[in-house]
């Protein structure tokens, strides 16, 4: 399924999209796959999945730790691709990836996107490739039918917003505040203004991330006319809280996801 249809269907129901984020292979290969299944069965509209990296510089402590645990359990790029392959055996849900530049570059950019096309992946966000360095990645992404996702932040100037929207084919990842991922700080309240500015130049879906952690935040996102919300650290924290008791973890995660889904 493509992003466009997801948003059309949600709009008909007066809802916005819920994009849960987790790290592929966290806490290990098997559990990661069952967590992803839980996400799909409990209200995820689009999956946002990260490849673990040794130096996740855009992430706060919670997601860093998830990266470390996955790597410690011998997860690498190939194994992430295998997990994606297994997901595709039971679900056509749209998938956006978050991958640090060195993993894409080292795998061979062309090879990487080619594999993603085979796996029917929808989009890739590379957090350390800003528009200035993105040309070759955009060309290759287009060649393999993979959409691009770029970040807009509360400090992105207006002209730059315009430029970023022109390069984006998937959705805008609107970062709600400065900093790294994590749930310490709340979203900045001037989101409405930034969303308005983006709407003036683009029809792309706008998904808001960073600082979104509880169901009430989804109410706020609807009020400012965002198209979706991305929850990462809060989900990973749920998983980390009960790592020793997987059935309990799954149950708690399910409850949490259903609370979010009820508000979206």
């Amino acid at each position: 399924m493509n992003y466009h249809n997801v948003y059309i269907n949600l709009k008909k129901e007066g809802k916005i999209a819920f994009l849960p984020f987790t790290i592929l292979g966290f806490p290990n290969f098997e559990t990661s796959l069952s967590v992803i299944q839980t996400l799909i069965e409990n209200g995820a509209d689009i999956l946002e999945l990260g490849f673990p990296f040794s130096d996740p510089v855009a992430d706060g402590p919670i997601i860093q730790e998830a990266n470390n645990i996955a790597l410690h359990n011998n997860i690498n790029t190939e194994k992430c691709l295998t997990i994606l392959e297994k997901i595709r055996k039971f679900s056509p849900i749209p998938i956006g990836l978050l991958v640090y530049a060195n993993l894409v570059f080292t795998y061979g950019t062309e090879n990487f996107y080619k594999r993603l096309q085979e796996l029917k992946i929808n989009s890739v966000l590379i957090p350390d490739i800003p528009p200035e360095e993105s040309e070759e990645y955009r060309v290759i992404a287009q060649k393999y039918g993979i959409q691009t996702v770029f970040i807009i932040t509360p400090v992105t100037p207006k002209e730059r917003i315009d430029k970023i929207c022109q390069m984006t084919t998937g959705f805008i990842y609107l970062v709600s505040r400065l900093g790294v991922t994590g749930t310490h700080e709340k979203a900045r309240i001037d989101l409405a203004e930034t969303i308005k500015t983006i709407r003036q130049v683009s029809n792309l879906p706008i998904n808001v991330g960073f600082g979104i952690s509880d169901p009430s935040h989804f109410k706020n996102l609807k009020q400012v006319h965002a198209d979706g919300g991305i929850i990462g650290s809060a989900i990973i924290k749920q998983i980390q809280n009960s790592l020793s008791d997987i059935p309990k973890m799954q149950k708690e995660l399910k409850n949490y996801l259903q609370q979010i889904s009820a508000q979206k």
């Binding site: 350390d128 800003p130 200035e132 970040i151 992105t156 100037p157």
Partner: peptide, 20 residues
């Protein structure tokens, strides 16, 4: 290209830091 020495260099950094 701006910021490059031959094939090396560039600005591979988060969008949050680009304005700075």
């Amino acid at each position: 290209k701006k910021g490059y020495y031959g094939n090396w260099g560039g600005q591979y950094i988060s969008e949050l830091l680009m304005p700075a």
